[in-house]
Design a binder for these strands. Structure first.
Lengths: 350, 350
DNA sequence: CTGTTAGCGCCTTCAG
DNA sequence: CTGAAGGCGCTAACAG
């Protein structure tokens, strides 16, 4: 079967509109109910009819209309992955794009088409709220919603399964979340520093709107225990490199009494290292620095980052799997939380 | 109006199914045809009726069903951005995610919902082919299709507007393309090297399946003219850092007679610089190196990359705009090509 | 096993 | 200005 059949092409030229199930039925000499059965894998179709239908479909280039099918069947076989990006400037994080690929894989294998939607303005949030309430998809994967996010409100009354990518303190969002064990991870890498004789540690915390930032800070607190000193914590406004540089500046007066800086993520760590270098401190000799995420950047910088690794593809897969379970009717406790493991990857910066 | 109204909530509890246009009509005391008119901004609705309908909608939390509307109206108000990723390992390129944001903006402003779909396996390609032929969206934005891509075949018989992100030699794809002036850009930065006294130039070319790779190489050829020497060209298998390293290795025997290496993109350039350093050559003193894309990485490495900048958000916006034009009925020449300008950004590596 | 038929929720003439 | 009715393309329940 070649893709292009001249005869077929000319046929199509004379009949420029898409064939419907009735056209196929007519071609095959059966009623269109039978064609529908064939299409949906119903047993009760004679071998003979099946063959004629198959031929008719082939010949007419028939493909079922998605809207009609969704309407009749009351489900779309589509899952939407909604990702919130802070602004037009920020782009999609590497971890998010990896998770997308993971989720896309398992959803696709299960016969669902995943589509991703970007929310980055009030207007888009508005539009998405409409969409979600219009039975656009059978289920939703929510990425990086901040605590007080207006986008989250869009899902308050949704009658479809939803899975979140971050744990949250927000009590009115009755959806399971799958997240990394951020607290454990940060605790572990902090202990690693401690075990290596770094005793005067500082911390650069992620932005306040992010639950993840808080969880990672908690892990740091766990590890340092009574040595925790609020004066050696810098609260960044975002997750970017610049924030790391600002943190180092803020710490400057006490840098001589600091021998390690634990950062909320890799980008911040890179910023810290850069700024420390400008101040004349070398990493890790003078001050050890750790990141979090093990993003592609971790390998690019000098020194290479010692950081907490998380498997983002797995994150996407795990989220998709529990969504599928819900789609299949399995009841999941509304505030169910699954924490994915992280691991320390030791490189040069600490 | 608070989002959660206890009374409404309990009402919903007793009537667990979504309200339809008929429910709204009943509540407002009009026929549902009138509600439909109201919904679609038809003039012929009395002020009185409009108000009652608005109240009924508010009260019932009504949102039109997407599938039904699409079916009746024969359009979805949706545009799909399809992006092909080489494998599960490769993630979404920064430039692509930026273009996504740009296109999303323009499309959203025009009342379309953009959804992005990932193609990364035969199975997903298969599924997408079905989708595209099922009137899933009103138009398509195609990202990074390789020349002989099977995915491209999915669009051979589509009856909807399509815009491509790369120019191509493939003649059977009658869709306009919007691309960067890759050839011009590479020619310009090569000339820049030449003008700065670099006379023995080598080139690292992108993967063969990519038209872009060829266009950039052509730009290099333009600039060096008769000095072009096939022995100083390395053909990479992909766009990644590792390929740059391999290129440097391949060039090693003649490195002493080379004073500049023009690379197909930033990642490759970074790989080249790294490997050169290992061989004991410094950049740019011994050998100047240039990139292409001005990706976020360009600023992170040492020395910072001198490269060709392209505005990826603009790319997305431009593609969306011509798609909109086609959606609005403007005829666009099938093989129309628009080339977006690039600029040289001088930093440290050359 | 197969034809018939009643919707799915909404849009859009067509009368009135 | 508004109600009634046919249809968008397909599914599913019901006779036969």
């Amino acid at each position: 079967m070649t893709t292009k059949q001249p005869s077929t092409m000319s046929t199509m030229a004379t009949a420029p509109k898409k064939p419907t199930i009735r056209d196929v039925a007519r071609l095959a000499g059966v009623s269109y109910g039978t064609v529908s059965r064939y299409l949906n894998g119903n047993e009760h179709v004679s071998k003979d009819a099946a063959e004629r239908i198959a031929a008719a479909i082939e010949q007419s280039h028939y493909t079922p209309n998605k809207a009609a099918r969704s309407l009749a069947r009351q489900r779309t076989q589509t899952v939407a992955l909604i990702i919130q990006v802070e602004s037009n400037e920020t782009m999609v994080q590497a971890s998010v794009s990896e998770a997308m690929v993971g989720a896309n894989q398992v959803l696709g294998d299960a016969g669902y088409q995943m589509v991703t939607i970007i929310a980055n303005s009030d207007e888009s949030t508005q539009r998405i709220t409409q969409l979600v309430n219009s039975d656009f998809a059978d289920g939703y994967l929510l990425f990086s919603l901040s605590e007080d996010d207006s986008l989250a409100n869009a899902f308050l009354n949704v009658r479809r399964p939803v899975v979140r990518s971050e744990i949250s303190d927000r009590g009115d969002l009755p959806y399971p979340a799958i997240d990394f064990a951020n607290r454990d991870g940060q605790r572990a890498i902090t202990r690693y520093l401690l075990d290596n004789g770094r005793t005067r540690l500082a911390y650069v915390c992620g932005p306040g709107y992010s639950p993840t930032a808080g969880n990672r800070l908690d892990g740091f607190k766990d590890a340092v225990g009574d040595d925790y000193d609020e004066r050696r914590v810098y609260y960044a406004d975002d997750w970017e490199i610049t924030s790391g540089e600002m943190a180092a500046v803020a710490f400057q007066p006490q840098l001589d009494r600091i021998d390690g800086i634990v950062c909320a993520n890799d980008s911040i760590a890179i910023g810290v290292i850069n700024q420390l270098a400008r101040f004349g401190y070398t990493t890790p000799d003078d001050i050890a620095v750790t990141g979090f995420d093990d993003s592609p950047l971790a390998l690019l910088v000098n020194p290479k980052l010692t950081t907490v690794r998380q498997d983002s593809q797995l994150h996407g897969r795990a989220m998709a799997e529990t969504l599928l379970r819900m789609l299949h009717g399995t009841a999941i406790e509304p505030h169910h939380v699954e924490l994915l493991p992280t691991s320390i990857v030791k490189r040069q910066s600490a």
